[in-house]
Design a protein around this nucleic acid. Structure first.
Lengths: 339, 339
DNA sequence: TTGTATGCGTTATCAG
DNA sequence: CTGATAACGCATACAA
């Protein structure tokens, strides 16, 4: 049983001072000779720095916080994959918090992180009105924050998101190609920036194309969860359908909607085309597969994490990074019935 | 800008020594008077311990590693939710590693964690033959490991899993209730302990019920991924169907299978009943919903994490914790066609 | 029961 | 360029 070698072991064996080894480790100036000897000793001993000691000395915690409504969110797993990729480069660890996992909203854990400076930075997925106090507190306490796909604009907070307006336009084009002229839109919560932008893009492009989007064909769901989609479907499909294509605010809603539609024997896409946003993997697993506009969520996770570390290293101006979205055509969309 | 208070600040303000505060913090003996004063000062100052300094002093890292094939695994998100719940109690952080996220198997990151003692303990989800070296190394390096739903038995490794044999029997009963007599089983990889046990339970109970399970109606898929289920469906549904009910090794496989089945117009459950295992949330989102046997994954995550911390605190004998599974009847199973 | 002193492994400051 | 040495914040023998 031999304990893990420390920087002191390396220094002694290489015949130099501890501080020289430290400098070498951090890429500061060291003579070629010393550099070589130290490297050799490190290799022989299998030395690696202690994260804890290093962070203690640097006054950091060495871990970042990732907060999300629910880790069960279909959307989140992909983001997490991206974060993980980036995180492994930085030898940092992760603290996870779900705001709404236990059946009720509870942000006190994250408030604690901020107050007690338990994290070096924060990635917040889809922050909305509810998360406003959280964001403010983080800014006050000088904790860098990246918000991913925020549901509202917040000043002084760095943002990673997609170009939802363009995405809406893409959907408009796709449906127009199929000759749809009676199109509906059902967003997430009406405050949601994502939904508003998607609708905006859809609306504008449809207008350009000379296709009407009747106000009575615009609806809003309670949340972005599949259950809300199910609920919406039950009310919408209770009365005669006046549209041939339906654009849902995200994939989860669309999936929920499709379940009810199929249950009621509505043929998708023959009677009704359905489009979602996000491209969650589950959309490809059912039949018909869900046509959707993909967010590069994994890449967004990487970007969010990467930028967070940059902001931790040095204070920078906040900026907004916007990714394009890409149409993924599967089976849930097809020609308009009338045509 | 006032920096975070330290234990020294508390000690000074309370008029006691640092060590007394430390003892109080760790629940050791302190006089009632001192206890009270210290508590007050802590409250006033809003003091909280530095995780890093504490762990450095204790010789721990303060974070645990969670290893999984892919964080995108439908199965994993729920486990993670449970782990998160437990983790927040212990003020520990998390390091995440996907073995197979980047298109090829790569365990070097986790090997690094073990070699360099970057984690206090490890939770490994569904370890199989591939992970054997990892487990061995962890045991060698004295790093506590909990394996969740392992695909093979490993000695000296603590296990959290479900009673898959009983689960198989439950499915047998369910299908027997629906008068099915031509039943098929398609497992995950043939080495998988989960699949073998599920088959075993199914087989035994069917035998008791006097229902045959033809050897030619037992198949194995390449993996546990939905894609493997799709592939399997393509070959099985290519020829005339000789069964009225099909039990898939897990939900992901079942979901993939159902997609192809629906695509080919096979009526589920009128022509073919389908059952899965795990109860991933997606199974409830399609129509017909997938009948399955639920693993209490969130609870398993909690248990795995909780036990890991116990093992970190003190060396204990390894044990196996086994949870019951529960049948979740949805729409993908129904009466046998012949009846 | 309490205080003193030392160690945990690094980084950074400041003379040489 | 290099080497002492003081933080970093806490835990714990040991002495009182």
């Amino acid at each position: 049983m031999t304990r893990k070698p420390t920087i002191a072991d390396v220094a002694e064996r290489a015949g130099v001072a501890i501080s020289t080894v430290s400098r070498h480790l951090n890429g500061h100036y060291v003579s070629r000779a010393a550099k070589k000897r130290i490297s050799e000793v490190i290799a022989v001993l299998g030395y690696s720095r202690s994260r804890n000691a290093r962070n203690l000395s640097l006054g950091r915690t060495g871990s970042i916080g990732v907060v999300v409504d629910s880790t069960l969110d279909l959307w989140f797993t992909q983001l997490l994959a991206g974060i993980e990729e980036e995180l492994s480069k930085h030898d940092a660890s992760l603290m996870l918090a779900s705001l709404d996992l236990r059946g009720h909203y509870d942000a006190h854990i994250v408030h604690g992180w901020i107050r007690e400076k338990r994290v070096d930075g924060l990635i917040i997925a889809k922050p909305g009105k509810r998360e406003r106090p959280l964001l403010q507190k983080a800014v006050e306490c000088q904790i860098p924050v990246i918000s991913v796909a925020p549901d509202e604009v917040v000043k002084n907070i760095q943002v990673v998101r997609c170009d939802n307006i363009a995405a809406g336009a893409t959907v408009a084009d796709h449906l127009a190609d199929f000759r749809h002229r009676k199109i509906g839109f059902a967003g997430g919560p009406p405050q949601s920036l994502d939904s508003k932008d998607r609708l905006l893009g859809l609306q504008n492009r449809l207008k350009q194309l000379g296709i009407p989007l009747d106000r009575r064909h615009i609806w809003w769901c309670e949340s972005y969860q599949a259950l809300a989609g199910i609920e919406f479907a039950r009310t919408l499909l209770g009365k005669p359908l006046d549209i041939t294509a339906l654009v849902m605010g995200n994939d989860a809603l669309a999936l929920g909607f499709m379940r009810v539609a199929q249950q009621r024997g509505i043929r998708v896409p023959q009677s009704l085309s359905i489009v979602g946003f996000d491209n969650v993997p589950e959309g490809a697993l059912l039949w018909p597969g869900l046509t959707t506009v993909a967010q590069p969520m994994r890449e967004m996770g990487r970007a969010a994490c990467g930028q967070l570390f940059e902001n931790i290293a040095l204070v920078r101006d906040v900026q907004i990074v916007e990714y394009p979205m890409e149409l993924v055509v599967r089976e849930s969309t097809g020609p308009a019935p009338d045509f």
